[in-house]
Structures are given as structure tokens and as C-alpha cells.
Simulated scan of single mutants.
Amino acid sequence: MPIDRDKALTADPAVRTIHWTTRDVLLYHLSLGAGADPATGPELHLTYENGLTVLPTFAVVAGSGISAGEAEPPGFHLPGIDIDLRAVLHAGQELRVHRPLPASGTATLTSRVAGVRDKGKAALIVLESAATGPAGEPLWTSTTRIWARGEGGFSHDPGPDEEPVTPPDRPADTVVTSRTTPQQALWYRLNGDLNPLHADPEFARAAGLDRPILHGLATYGLVCKALVDGVLDGDAGRLTHLAVRFAGPLVPGESLTTSVWRDGPSAEGTERLVLHTSCPERDGAPVLTHATATVTA
């Protein structure tokens, strides 16, 4: 089905109420490997309900896990957009957290198509979701970039060029490593993303891959946890913004090496970090690029 950009951009936002519990948060943290490294111990602040800290990237799965009930069949269907799931690639993710997330809660989630760009052989679809709490307080805003192969040619308008994010020409200030396990994607899909690309070898081959790959949002969460552990002294509340582009797949069982360059504190009391994440098992192939984070000083 061709993309109808005008219909997609003018459709009314989708509004729904979402709920999450400490069980959802605990599963999310476990799916990112919390408590699995003997060197860090059980990480009870992430794996035990008493005194539970919430990693900010939990926001991207809130309302989709255990407490949401039976997950809907995977698909990609929006007003003006109906795409074969095998054509879809997660191109990028951005999250702004306006306050620390509670370990359980309810929110109103308002979602819309914020952009549809014709890239010739593909379409770039930009989705935006904003969550507010029961009293109307802003909780988070997330932006998802979807690359739809074979869906271009509907407008000949590629959209504006975007300024690239390039790491400084000096050694990184910090380098952190995240390890994954062969079953990592099977754990992570229980957060609500049941796309067979991450579990079914036959489906993965039909999509042009050798084997199932890890969810892009799992990589995103792994890097968030690595920043909290390796840069922020375990204080998850200091990370308020994380934006990345997904540059290459990661196979469960491979590792991530994230290099971090610090800009120094600003007058507003925040600090910008520039990130680059690669896979050492594949000779440093990039996994996340054009990546930045904002942290409170």
C-alpha cells in the first residue's frame, strides 16, 4: 500500500492510558542483563522491588509488558501507512525524561506521526509519543525513526538535511563495555515487542539477515545502563536525554563497546555527552552512531 503522507500527518493523535508495575520494571532490567555480572553483584537497586530505581529508557516499553496483558500481533499500521513488517528497520531513537520515572504508575500516552520523508528507495517515518502523569505532569517524550525499505517514491521530498554528530578528534574520556547473552533477545521481547525478527531464524532470513538480531531498543537500553553504571556512578536520575541512530545489527551473544566524550558542565547545570557504540567481535563495526546524551552535573 503506498504511503499517504498527508493523511498520516493530519490524522488525530492516538491517545491511550498505560499502566506499569514493579514487575514490568524488574523484567525490563533483567532483560538488559542486570544482576548477571558477578563483578557487580545482584544489583538490587535494579533487580529487587524494595528501593527500586528505574532506568530512564524503561519509558520506551512502559505499558507494553506483563501488566498490558496479551501482546498484540506485531505489525506496522497507522493512518496513511500500512507497511510489511519485513520492510521495517528501526533507524533511531530519542528520549527526553522530564522527571525520574516511578517504579509503578499510570500515564496518558499521546502518539502521532511527526514526519514522513521520501528517501527514494525508502521512507523515513518519524513517530512522536508524549506521556503525562495523572495530574497532567510531563513524564517523557520519545521520538522513533523508522526506515521502511521499498516504500519511497511518494513525494520526491527527502526532507531537510540533518547535522551529523561526530565524536571529537581525541581519545574518549570513558569506554564502557556491555555484554549480551545468546538468549538476550528472547528475554527482551517479553517487554512487548514480539517481532519474529528477533526470535525466528526463518523470518530473519526472509528479511535478509543470517540469524535473529537483538532489538534496537535493547541495545539502546544496554547503552543507557552502561552510562548510568560507568559515567553517572549509578545515579539513573541524572540521565535526562538519549538520542541515537542504529547503524548496524547486534547478534545476541556479542558485546558492545561504548566510547564517551564529555563536553563539560554548562551554565544550566547539564552536560552533553557524545557517544559511539561498536561491536568488538566484528572488528569494531558501528552499532550506534550520531549519539548524544544529556546528564545533570
Rank of each mutant, 00 (worst) to 15 (best):
G253M: 03
S255D: 13
G264E: 04
C279P: 00
V244P: 08
S259K: 14
L242W: 04
L273Y: 05
D263F: 07
P249S: 06
F246K: 11
C279Y: 06
T277A: 03
L273S: 11
R238C: 05
V251E: 12
T277N: 08
A267Y: 02
V260R: 07
L256C: 03
D263L: 01
V274P: 05
S278V: 15
V244E: 04
E254P: 00
L273A: 12
V251Q: 04
R238V: 05
T257I: 10
T270C: 03
L256P: 04
P265W: 14
A267N: 06
T270L: 07
G248I: 06
T257H: 13
P252Y: 09
V260G: 09
S259Y: 12
F246D: 00
E254K: 01
P265K: 12
G248K: 00
P265S: 14
P265N: 08
T270Q: 05
G264M: 13
H276N: 11
A267H: 11
G253Y: 02
T240C: 12
T240F: 09
A243M: 10
P265M: 07
A267L: 11
G253K: 02
P252M: 09
L256Q: 07
G253P: 03
R272P: 03
T270A: 01
T277W: 05
H276T: 11
G237P: 06
A267V: 13
L239A: 12
P252L: 06
L273H: 08
G237F: 02
E254G: 00
V251T: 15
V251M: 02
V274H: 06
T270M: 04
C279T: 15
S266V: 00
V244M: 02
T270Y: 05
T240S: 15
P249A: 10
R262Q: 10
G269V: 07
V251F: 12
F246M: 04
R245C: 01
E268C: 05
T240V: 15
T270K: 07
